[in-house]
Amino acid sequence: MRGPLGIFSRVGGRQDLGRGAAFWVAFAIVALGLVAFPLFGSAFYLSNLANFFVYVPMGLGLCLLWGYGGILSFGQASFFGISGYVYGIVAQNLSLTPGASLLGVAAAILATVIVAALFGYFVFYGQVSAWIIPLLTLVLSLILETFMAQTAGYQWRIGHVLLGGYNGMTGIPSIQVGPLEFGGASIALYLLTVIAMLLGYLGLRLLVNSHFGYVVVGVRDDVERTRMLGYNVARMQVTVFALAAGLAGLSGVLYVSWGNYINPSSMGLYAATLPVIWTAVGGRSSLIAVTLSTVALKWLADSLAVRGGEYAFLIMGALLLATMLFFPAGIVVSLNRLWRRARRQAP
């Protein structure tokens, strides 16, 4: 397992669906197709697809946390929002300095990870029972949303940037590297989101198939036993929690670069539940399933908006309930199981 070959065998390890040559060939074709898409896609489709892909790191983070780590969190949206706001504050304040936006990205993700680690310290070192974490992360979302919503006045500003209250923070610059600007309808941003999605997926796949990943799964399956084996369970959980938050933070930064705007409802109740829906519907035990379902459900919500928007929430709720009742492992994962069983039975 040493050297580049070792990495390959690890990425292809047991802790996810999709193994063998056929899967990797298909993966490579899709990846190439996504990278080549700007050659023939219109600006609008690129902007739209980028908007779907922006959320994939956040979904992957929850997949790691819930599916592999056994910790359900409604806090992903909070971290998404914190990151977006921090980026906005830093990048706007330093807008005249070259490279300010990269500094903003670093500060945003760092801030997110620190907040998550602090919150995780309180929760995981207190060894609260599993159901408290989703409730407390919901409470965290509510604190942050309520707090940000009332920061409308002139007194709420950092440097010369107004926090903007309920209306949100406007005029956030897109990420800029040299002459390349990653704006909402640009090819550059589209490619950046594709890369973030692919690297996020491959990186996490590598992680869950590493020693660390196996311990994380061990904590999920039996906390006491893992503790007996000499692992610091609480530290492990805080690490995974912070990592998931960092991924949500990455999504947050990409989102503000796409929309140049963020507001408190991006961390509100509905925003907080979306990652949970993506993860549950796709199948929380598989990174590729969550990647697919995040993009598919964002696309579904978008097309529902265009026709018959009244039914969007209803359909999301029905989808979630039906998944939990009939495909508790998730739709993509269950379909994969069915397919494999069918293939095994065929001669």
Partner: peptide, 21 residues
């Protein structure tokens, strides 16, 4: 007239759709 569902992100997506597409 697509429906933005009182959702700010939908507003952004649909505004881009109306303009670009």
């Amino acid at each position: 007239a697509p429906d933005p569902q009182s959702d700010n992100t939908q507003f952004q997506t649909l505004a881009r759709r109306l303009i670009l597409d």
